[in-house]
Amino acid sequence: MRTISVEEFGQAMNQKPLAVVDIRPFDDYQAWHIEGPRIESQHLDGTSILRDAKTLQALDSETPWVVVCALGETAKAVGAVMDREGYDVTVLEGGMAAWNRYHELHAVAEEPTFSLFQIQRRGKGCLSYLLASNGEAMLFDPSQFVDVYQRILDQNGWRLKAVADTHVHADHITGGFFLSERYHVPFWRGQNSPGVSLLQDGQEFKVGAVTVKAIASPGHTPDSFSFLIAGRYLLTGDALFVSGVGRPDLGGHAKEWGEDLHRSLQQLQSLAPETVILPAHYAHWSEINDHGIVAGTLGDLQAQNPLLHEPLESFVNHVEASASAMTPPNYEPIVAFNVSQKGPLDPAILRSWEIGPNRCAAPA
């Protein structure tokens, strides 16, 4: 029986088909499991396997299987049974908790004066961004796993100049506070609270040779901002996704915030159609394009997303319907922490809050 780290697994799933058997309770599996274009996923109850090895007959005995549980421990026991029964088996180290922490770096743009990277958190569907130019760097929407960003900065010799969030996130803990404290740099956001520098509409930042412009984009939340980089790359946060728009209902003001979102999307659509849209989340692996990033030009999204052409009333009616959808897991304590660091600072607790899907989009 072998084991595989989430880093090794993440790289492998980009290159070849993988068969995964998830042994968590079925409700947990149904709500959230490993997905991808080359992933064959199957559920079998781990307790049933440990009780009776004949349960494994539901699996193809000729297929190499990667066994996944919540934390990696039960998978070891199940993997031992599978190994004894003659299966080719590998156990994912740390289980879904480790998969939830896995980040993957992808280049969006490599220009003569700057580089822009998308950092994908595959298990959560969260996207953060790093802009680097002339030895300086700025991070956008970082996760709480700040060592990931420190490694990237250190490996490239980039000096972090600032951190910014597009909005107060409801599905994951921001890394803004932690990075601000570690690097002694400002943490910019549209919502004012201790430890935060307040963004202004139209405010500009200089990162090396590149200009970043903050654009107020309320709707998903009242504090939402987009960031236009070099006039060509737009970080839209949760205002506009590749396959939908942001949910305006999480604060309990779906109609009012929906009207704000409509106005923000109309404003953003005044940009050039070749503007590259880079959201803060994706809902499904199919949103990752052939270049390995979640992105689309504004013109393409306008052609594909009918919500961008809806009149105000019908737009609000559509996005209000998302109010009946499931909310992100633990979103109330996550929002409270992200607003002003109210809550425990125990990393284990903060990580446990994030287990599960993001649920931040209203589909087109």
Rank of each mutant, 00 (worst) to 15 (best):
K124T: 09
A70S: 13
T74G: 11
L18F: 06
Y282N: 04
R2W: 08
H284W: 02
S226E: 01
V168E: 07
L271Y: 14
S197I: 02
P248R: 08
S243F: 01
H167E: 04
Q118S: 12
F9H: 05
R232W: 04
L131V: 06
G237A: 09
L298Q: 11
L127F: 04
A107S: 15
L228M: 12
V210K: 04
M1T: 14
R24E: 05
M96D: 03
V21C: 04
D171F: 08
P248F: 02
V276Y: 02
A31C: 01
N14T: 07
H103T: 05
G356P: 03
W353K: 08
S133K: 10
V276C: 14
A107Y: 06
K255G: 01
E204K: 13
G244F: 05
L56H: 04
V185D: 12
F241Y: 15
G299V: 12
R359P: 01
H291L: 11
G343V: 09
I173S: 01
L271T: 08
I288N: 05
Y183D: 11
S340I: 02
F177M: 05
H43C: 01
V146Y: 03
V294R: 02
D154A: 11
A283P: 00
L228W: 05
M82I: 03
P357Y: 01
S180T: 08
H172K: 09
